[in-house]
């Protein structure tokens, strides 16, 4: 994050897009692995978890950004945790009110959003220094990046593990589900495969840039 020396970031498209690609919380920073591996066994769970995390991320970042000049640095972590925990509790009740079935499927991982390091990381590294509107855009981008990552795992795991997307069967009667995909090891397999793909893309891009600028020859 080279932006750090600049105390107040100016709003740009990059403020949002960073969370999707270069600083994607899952695929680039490998943060918040616990929900990523645990609740992505279906598309629905992945969407619900992603949205819940995004809600907590955006709300807590906004509040922290709003109070940033008011929180003494000695008690900042305690303050952040209380704020995050408040919004997690709100989400917890909200999901129970929307659907108990979904609540049972997500289990303890809703409460565990409170210890998701993506959120505390954003609060500490971004929201506590930046103005309200850039914080909003940045945390929305991070939330979207997290949700997309969960979705990427959730769809693959549901297609292979249950032969369906969002509960709609894709292959008809005789499909053989790959049971392992909806069990915890499947999360590791699919995450590993996605990381392989993204790193391969990134390396290829870097190599191309190097070749074009001729740095490769000098560095060789």
């Amino acid at each position: 994050m080279a932006e750090l020396p600049n105390p107040q970031e100016n709003l740009s498209l990059d403020t949002f897009l960073r969370g999707l690609w270069t600083e994607n919380p899952v695929f680039a920073m490998l943060l918040g692995m616990c929900p990523v591996l645990a609740v992505t066994n279906s598309t629905m769970n992945a969407i619900a978890m992603g949205l819940a995390t995004t809600f907590v991320l955006v709300c807590s970042s906004l509040l922290i950004s709003l109070l940033r000049n008011w929180i003494p640095k000695q008690v900042r972590i305690a303050s952040y945790i209380i704020i995050i925990a408040t919004f997690v509790t709100i989400v917890d009740y909200g999901i129970q009110a929307i659907s108990l079935e979904l609540y049972a499927a997500l289990g303890a991982f809703i409460q565990l959003i409170v210890v998701n390091c993506v959120i505390l990381g954003r609060a500490e590294a971004y929201a506590s220094k930046q103005r309200l509107h850039t914080t909003l855009v940045n945390s929305l981008g991070m939330g979207a990046g997290f949700t997309i990552a969960l979705l990427a795992l959730g769809t693959v795991r549901e297609i292979l593990g249950s032969g369906s997307i969002l509960g709609v069967a894709l292959f008809g009667e005789g499909f053989q589900p790959w049971v392992v995909m909806i069990l915890p090891p499947g999360g590791f397999f699919v995450l590993g495969a996605w990381l392989l793909l993204f790193n391969w893309l990134r390396l290829r891009k870097e190599r191309k840039v190097m070749e074009q600028s001729g740095v490769a020859a000098n560095a060789g």
């Binding site: 109070l67 929180i71 003494p72 008690v75 305690a78 303050s79 209380i82 925990a85 408040t86």
Partner: peptide, 10 residues
């Protein structure tokens, strides 16, 4: 003040 305020708000 801060902690109490945040706790009340929460």
């Amino acid at each position: 003040r801060t902690l109490a305020g945040i706790a009340i708000l929460s």
